[in-house]
Design a protein around this nucleic acid. Structure first.
Lengths: 204, 204
DNA sequence: TATAACATACCAACTGGTTGGTATGTTTGC
DNA sequence: GCAAACATACCAACCAGTTGGTATGTTATA
């Protein structure tokens, strides 16, 4: 009775492979064979679990939502009592995540949506869902911070939450162009400064 | 008797085709045949002018620099005497460019660098050049605005200039995910608000 | 000025390898 | 024993790139 400790689970291995390979090479350049090779499974296993490459793209985006969902849910910044501190803590946490190689800290769905938004609507929708659901969590804290201060402003919590995601996605593009995380950290610093200015926090 | 009139010029037609097709489908999904079909030339012409698809990628990025270079050089915001007004005018101009379909207003090099940064260093470098040279122009106005006000701050003109590009690139990703320009305009509005706050401009 | 020699711009057909996907096994867990 | 989970073998379409060729300049030279 061999293999009692190892759990084959080709599907999970393929999804894990998708996260790293697609973030490195992009969705279109990633072949099904690439994914099978990386995951250590055969093509038969791939098409047993996914009815097409497009289907894997959607599943990978959903898997990414799950992956990042638990990552941010378990992050320490939620402990702050003041919702604004949670927002600023979130941004500091994003900056702290800029570690390892560029493919390691960049966003799967941001990469995928650029290649598929006109050609694969279901992948685009899955990417949109991933981004929007994540933004909604930050929006909640922004909204709470605004209400705690009874702010009268010409912008919404939703637009600021989405703006944080735009900055992060753009920071990743610059990091890819310049081959390092430093520029991305600078951009997040500007975003943090902006949020502090919006909420009248004394900048040190 | 030199041909001073019109030149059919398959090369120019291929580069024009590259701008639209790659922005729509992405670099990897764009085949050489796609470009030839769009340009109305044959494959022989393609490989006469470009030694490889990769070579076209580099040429397309350089062509994009040229294209955007003249676009922004001829833009009206340069008329302002105050350099800060030029910076804010630039950002308003970027917002005004959000017209037509998503492939029409998004950035070629931002799209390409995501797919090539790990696999095609020369394309990545060409994209980086395009972004950085553009940012340098905005940096000049930001720097002038800072010096005119003798500002003592903990950020540099260069980092703010690059941050504007990050916001724009990220705004394009969100526009692709959500299928419209509205969200991109919102993000640029946040960026404008940030610049005004940094320079203590009275927000209306 | 005539012409040989060369260069540029382009074309249609082809090639070897890769692609996503399928058809048909074999193995495993309940 | 039977379905789900894999593996093997294969295919037609497509891919980037090559080939051999034509048509139209441009330059050198006598």
């Amino acid at each position: 009775m061999p293999k009692l400790d190892t759990k084959p689970d080709a599907k999970a291995k393929l999804l894990d492979a998708a996260l790293s390979v697609i973030r490195t090479k992009g969705y279109s350049s990633t072949s099904v064979d690439d994914l099978c090779r990386e995951a250590g499974v055969t093509k038969g296993a791939f098409f047993h679990h996914f009815k097409s490459k497009n289907d894997l793209g959607v599943a990978a985006a959903d898997y990414w939502s799950l992956f990042t969902g638990t990552l941010f849910t378990n992050a320490p910044y939620h402990d702050h009592a003041d919702p604004l501190d949670r927002v600023l803590g979130y941004l500091e946490f994003r900056k702290a995540l800029l570690r390892g190689g560029v493919p390691d800290f960049t966003c799967l769905v941001g990469t995928m949506v650029q290649e598929t938004y006109e050609t694969a609507p279901n992948i685009r929708d899955a990417c949109d869902r991933s981004i929007s659901e994540h933004a909604a969590k930050i929006e909640a804290d922004i909204d709470a911070a605004m209400q705690a201060r009874a702010m009268a402003v010409d912008w919404t919590a939703e637009s600021l939450a989405l703006h944080t995601q735009a900055v992060l996605q753009g920071a990743f593009i610059l990091a890819k162009a310049k081959g390092g995380a430093a520029i991305a950290a600078d951009s997040i610093d500007h975003l943090i400064r902006y949020v502090k200015l919006l909420f009248d926090v004394q900048t040190t």
